[in-house]
């Protein structure tokens, strides 16, 4: 388990990217591609001018600091917020930062229903103010074989769900992202949205959901989430591949049967329900044995590192899967 302590010293200054640095980095390069492109080779020209506004919109949060793990180097904030998979806003890695800035995240309600004694709808912003938020510095491993280390701010999913008193029939938890084609271009257009059947849905087994490492995150780097990272509330399950971390959640339903999950529906032979980080089970099209860590520094400082079973959280979570064949239940 992670050890929490209330009066924790701040993160080392050198691990936090100063705002001025990443704001200035964004402000360049637009029309270049048009002039240069041979047969339209300008596709890369992506500068999120809208990202300015969003940075201003992010609010500072009150939270308990996590104890920094000396083995973990944080991914700079600008990389965390400019390299995202959020197909509702496009399939390119910089599309979400570019296209999501007008997402209306306030007000936002989250409904909890299904196999619970006390179903209900909560005001997420009120929830943020009323809950003791804590920082969790987690490794994040994408199924595409890259990884980050992100200081999330949030609260334990299990404690949150307990308030609604799950019944004995609650065996799984199903999550759903906002469905709003007007605000989400990927839901309007199949090309933009990468062919996913929207709304995006995800799921966990109840014991996975109740595990203290599973959190609902409302912020990163001390501030509320930017839209591209799943504002205002998203799931973070650090021992699973990133796509399990469903973003901009509007509904949580406790259910008796294993719920459908988006990537599994699209490509069942490539993405399973469990999606535990597992270096021993390759994706059909690439190796999962190692990963590219996205840390500080430029292109040539990229380093490839070994992927850890359960993304390094095996000690805490391996017992959830005893007697399960993880090759079969990938």
């Amino acid at each position: 388990m992670l050890i929490k302590s209330r009066k924790q010293s701040d993160l080392p200054e050198n691990q936090i990217t100063p705002e001025s640095a990443y704001v200035s980095r964004r402000s360049v390069i637009r029309g270049l591609g048009a002039g240069l492109g041979l047969a339209g080779l300008g596709g890369l020209v992506t500068a999120g001018t809208g990202a300015f506004a969003a940075e201003a919109k992010r609010k500072p949060l009150d939270f308990t600091r996590d104890k920094p793990d000396p083995d973990l180097v944080l991914t700079p904030e600008a990389k965390v917020t400019n390299h995202n998979n959020f197909y509702e806003f496009g399939t390119g890695k910089t599309d979400p930062a570019q296209n999501s800035q007008d997402l209306k995240v306030e007000p936002w309600t989250l409904t909890v229903e299904g196999e619970v004694a006390k179903p209900g709808t909560v005001d997420v912003w009120k929830l943020m103010a009323d809950t003791n938020l804590e920082e969790r510095i987690y490794r994040m491993r994408c199924v595409e074989a890259w990884s980050m280390v992100i200081p999330w701010v949030g609260f334990e999913l299990g404690k949150f769900l307990a308030r609604f008193e799950p019944t004995s029939r609650a065996k799984y938890v199903a999550f759903e992202t906002l469905y709003d084609p007007q605000q989400m271009p990927g839901q309007r257009n199949r090309i933009v949205g990468g062919g996913i059947d929207y709304p995006y849905v995800e799921g966990l087994r109840i014991d996975e959901a109740m595990h203290p490492l599973s959190i609902l995150s409302v912020g990163l780097y001390g501030k509320t989430l930017p839209p591209q990272n799943g504002a205002p509330i998203r799931l973070v399950v650090p021992w699973k591949y990133g796509f399990k971390g469903i973003k901009s959640i509007v509904k949580i339903k406790l259910v008796e049967k294993m719920p459908p999950t988006s990537w599994n529906k699209l490509l069942p032979q490539e993405y399973g329900f469990y999606a535990n980080v597992n270096p021993a089970v390759d994706h059909p099209r690439w190796s999962q044995a190692s990963e590219r860590f996205i840390g500080p520094g430029g292109l040539f400082s990229v380093k490839r590192q070994k992927t850890l079973p359960f993304n390094g959280y095996g000690e805490e979570v391996a017992s959830l899967y005893t007697n399960m064949d993880l090759r079969k239940f990938y």
Partner: peptide
């Protein structure tokens, strides 16, 4: 475009993960 790429990489314009 290659010259532009060279510049963009150095200036950090290729997003969080320039490799991909």
């Amino acid at each position: 475009p290659l010259l532009w790429l060279f510049y963009a990489i150095n200036a950090g314009h290729l997003g969080g993960d320039p490799v991909v």
